[in-house]
Write a protein that binds this DNA or RNA. Sequence first.
DNA 1: TTTAGGG
DNA 2: CCCTAAA
Length: 631
Amino acid sequence: MENRPPTIEFEDETIDVERLLVEPQDGNVPLDSVMCFNEKTSEKATDIREVSCSFGATSAGTAHEEGDILNRDVLNSLHTEDDGGYFRLQNDFCSMGEEYLLGVGFAESITDLEYVSSECLQISVSDSPVLTCAGIDSPWKSDLFKIMEVPECQNDVVDLKSYEFSEIPSPQHESEKLAEKKPLKSPQESIDKVHDVSRHYFDDVPSDENATSLSHPVEMFSCPKDEKNDEYGPAGQSGESNRIQGKDELVTLLSAESPSDALPMLKRSRKPTKRYIDEVVDPISRHSKRRREVSSSTVRDKYVGVKDLKKCHMGSKAMKLPAEESAVKAIQVPFGLLVHKECPESPAYKLVNSSDKRILMNKPKDNCVASKNQKKRDECTPVVHQMKRSDGTPAGSQKKDDNVSGAHLMKKDQYITNIHLTKRNESVMATSQKKKEKDLNGGPLMKSDDCLTAPSQKIKERSMFAGSPKKEDECATAICQKKRDEFPTVESPEEVSGRRKHHRLWTNAEVKKLIDGVAEYGVGRWSRIKKIYFPASAHRTSVDLKDKWRNLLKASGLQGQHKEQGEKKRNIAWRPLPKSILRRVCELAEMHPYPKGGKPTTAHIRHVSPDKSTDITLSDYRRILRSINGS
DNA sequence: TTTAGGG
DNA sequence: CCCTAAA
């Protein structure tokens, strides 16, 4: 593209360079040049000049100052330092290797660009002449890109390059896999230079000559390393150009491994080291199955570690990795992570981890999320366990293998179904557990409570409640007992089957107390009443009091007036309330409309208006009578 | 945390 | 009694 014109101009130089190159080719020299590269990258403009020079030097092998000088001069004259630098380099290369070099140059630029883009190293790019190259789009880029598959390297391109070069071992590898599919049009020098460059590039990997062409460049990018400019610093020549070329060359070389040009001196393409491959694989994983496997394994490990750590963070990282590898995987993993995050607390968590983390985790998560209360949470835990059990076995067998997504799906379905089942069971279990808990807590407390006498063990519930004897009310004990007997038959069964854990019958004494409390503090002050009248009874909460009151009202027929008749019957069926209680309830109800409408709650009000109370009582009395009559 | 209300 | 929303 743009390079050509300059290349033409530089041909003279190129020639010189070639000449130089032909003579000696020292790896060291190129290295020096490389070193310069690094420096250059930082410096830019000046670098550019130097680069051109260096390039020549590299090509020459031993640094021929003359050639360098020439190059420099030409470059300087031709190019402005800043933007042109990179191009110039390429041009120079072109001149050197002409087409071959050109191609290489482009490839490099492309790779660089890509790499840069991938890394989002805009800054470095902007600074480095490379950017200009990037700016110039070449068809090569796309191709290169494909091949390369941008790795995730975060390091600056420049750094990487520099690093690579720096590491280049002085000795060059004899065996060269320069095999170039493309006939190298460029003179040997160019080739040599290329080789050197390539070698530099791959320095990271000690001369590995296994030619896996593609992987190399990627790897290079992927692994940023310290810049070893120090050693080669003296050469102080534009490393960029060399570097760039090197990359391109590498690519080309890799692609074509014809040793036609292979010079013993030059180390050409390096075959990707294992390490290279691995590195490449992780980010790229898609291409080769093998790579994928490797990557997957690594990823798994990571995940496992994460799980173990219980980081559970959905962190972009976690998400990222899977996403990169494969959609399926990506999806799965994140889920698992999420789940973990959601409820790491659950013991199931561990178990789940052992078996199939991802899938299992999902469910628990949902459950956990859904569960707001502790109760729910508890439920969740058991559920998870169950799930684990049911799914765990199969899950374990399946493992996380990337395998077919289908398997995964199946698993999920299974899991889901299991979950449902478990959930149902869970509910039951939860209820039972609840009961137990309550019993534990309530049992002892109850004892201490008012319950003076423990007459009714007939009731199932009581038995369940671990000897919470209920205090017998002053009011007809016989009645109470009767009630109890009735109640248990009627209510207890429901309770047992139902979610109600323990249904504690309200004794008349309790009711009385409640009424007293209401009379004293009014309706709606349940907490207070509870405190005062049921301080010891743990099982009677303010809510319970409220509920009881409500029930009393219903029973008294005050509330569901419109259904009075029906209520009567209900009441009867319900429970024989002692008249006294009913009456009082009615009174209080009159005084304090239940939903505390306008209630003159306080006792003094009551006192203040005894008439009222009386009136009320009368009105209520009728109802009460009716109810009683009904009964 | 308490209260009110639905279930 | 349980559960939840609202305060």
